[in-house]
Computed example of a mutant assay.
Amino acid sequence: MIKRLWAKLGISSTPKASSLPADNVPQHVAIIMDGNGRWAKKRGLPRMAGHHSGMKTVKRITIAADRLGVKYLTLYAFSTENWKRPKAEVDFLMKLPQQFLDIELDELVANNVQVRMMGSRENLPSHTLSALEEAISKTAGNTGLVLNFALNYGSRMEMLDAVRGIAKDVRAGKLDIDAITDQVMSDRLLSGGMPDPDLLIRTSGELRLSNFMLWQLAYSELWFTDVYWPEFTEKHFYEAIGQYQQRARRYGGL
């Protein structure tokens, strides 16, 4: 099934990924998908065209990650700050999850991909939320790649909510202060149950985290590229993985 999907997208069944060591593939890759609007502007197109093209990149990179053996792929789809954008653009962005899942959900189910969402459901339009909840429900039993959409997500909000929850439990006598550890905090975050990202990729040339997984990225390897998200290809993804595999992760040790 997945080979047929690669063929439909023009992806070779023997991509250059075959040259990457199979024993050092990052378990969790997180991506800040940036540059859709600038990609469109460069071509004299409306920003919405860039967002629509970026949706196609999501499909390509999901397939590439699955082929490599990545276990978790987290995509920063919409931040809590993105509500500040023009209403027409926000409305368009809120339609993209539904469009993507309407087309791809059957393939995701067939290829054992599990869909998750990390973010606040508050303020999300009903059509966006219902499409995501349907995908989450239909893929809940899948055991392959976890495709995790960070939607209406902000890391500071996430951490504040986690701290509030811990404080309430301490006040109620359910949790001792001395029992609060890194793991307790991690478990309270929206990414609880997933390992921290091994690798963060950001496209478009920006060199910042933009309120994305600030706690979880403490020891992640970072890889930045000037390539805009709509033109980010499997080759770029494999390049990022290759760079990751050449780095020594010491976690503060020697």
Rank of each mutant, 00 (worst) to 15 (best):
2 I>N: 10
3 K>E: 10
3 K>A: 06
5 L>H: 07
5 L>P: 09
6 W>K: 12
8 K>L: 13
9 L>D: 13
10 G>Y: 01
13 S>Q: 12
16 K>L: 11
19 S>M: 05
20 L>K: 09
21 P>N: 12
22 A>D: 08
22 A>L: 13
23 D>P: 02
27 Q>N: 10
31 I>L: 02
33 M>T: 07
33 M>W: 10
33 M>S: 07
34 D>L: 05
35 G>H: 13
35 G>F: 04
41 K>L: 15
44 G>H: 09
48 M>H: 10
51 H>R: 06
52 H>E: 12
53 S>C: 09
54 G>V: 03
55 M>D: 02
58 V>N: 00
61 I>Y: 01
66 D>W: 12
67 R>I: 14
70 V>G: 00
71 K>G: 06
75 L>M: 09
75 L>I: 11
77 A>L: 10
80 T>P: 00
80 T>Y: 03
81 E>I: 09
81 E>Q: 13
83 W>F: 08
85 R>G: 07
89 E>V: 15
93 L>M: 15
97 P>I: 03
97 P>C: 02
98 Q>G: 09
100 F>W: 14
100 F>L: 01
104 E>P: 01
104 E>D: 12
105 L>F: 05
108 L>W: 01
109 V>L: 13
112 N>G: 07
113 V>D: 04
118 M>D: 00
118 M>W: 03
120 S>I: 02
123 N>G: 12
137 S>N: 11
138 K>W: 11
141 G>F: 13
143 T>K: 11
147 L>T: 13
147 L>H: 04
148 N>D: 05
148 N>W: 13
150 A>N: 03
153 Y>S: 00
155 S>A: 13
155 S>V: 07
159 M>L: 01
159 M>R: 06
161 D>K: 14
162 A>P: 02
168 K>Y: 05
171 R>A: 09
171 R>E: 10
172 A>N: 14
175 L>T: 10
177 I>D: 07
179 A>S: 15
179 A>P: 06
180 I>Q: 10
180 I>C: 08
182 D>M: 09
192 G>A: 06
195 P>L: 06
196 D>A: 11
197 P>F: 06
200 L>C: 00
203 T>Q: 12
204 S>I: 06
205 G>Y: 10
206 E>Q: 15
208 R>N: 09
208 R>K: 07
209 L>N: 09
211 N>V: 08
212 F>P: 00
216 Q>G: 00
221 E>Q: 10
222 L>H: 08
224 F>S: 03
225 T>P: 00
226 D>Q: 05
228 Y>H: 12
229 W>Y: 08
231 E>G: 15
236 H>L: 01
240 A>M: 02
243 Q>D: 15
246 Q>W: 12
246 Q>Y: 09
248 A>W: 15
251 Y>V: 02
252 G>L: 04
252 G>A: 06
253 G>V: 07
